[in-house]
């Protein structure tokens, strides 16, 4: 079987992603008065990120038009795979024996 290459950007459920220029990035950071690490994150290995070619350190603008009130804009900061492990806290066993409450 031959694998057909599919461009996921063509899928109607994939919202519009664009890489911001440095200028635009600074503008956003200034607008919300934050540093880049306060933004929501996205992995460099994310399928869409790979396709549009964003690199770790970029800021991506996502325009979703399927929200009930029309267009909604979102910004995400691209991080490399290596930075990821720090975020996946191995805290699974540290959420100690919290059994579902029985009332």
């Amino acid at each position: 079987m031959t694998k057909k290459k599919i461009n996921i950007l063509d899928n109607e459920f994939v919202p519009e992603h664009t890489i911001l220029t440095e200028e635009e990035s600074n503008e956003i950071l200034q607008k919300f008065n934050v540093t880049f690490d306060r933004l929501p994150l996205i992995l460099e290995t994310d399928p869409v990120v790979k396709i549009i070619g964003a690199k770790s350190g970029d800021i991506i603008k996502i325009v979703r038009s399927d929200s009930p009130a029309g267009k909604s804009v979102f910004y995400r900061y691209v991080i490399g795979e290596d930075t990821k492990q720090g975020l996946e806290e191995d805290s699974v066993d540290e959420i100690i024996d919290e059994e579902p409450g029985e009332e």
Partner: peptide, 9 residues
């Protein structure tokens, strides 16, 4: 930042 606009809209 969790959402850039409350409820995204």
């Amino acid at each position: 930042i969790i959402q850039f606009e409350y409820g995204e809209d």
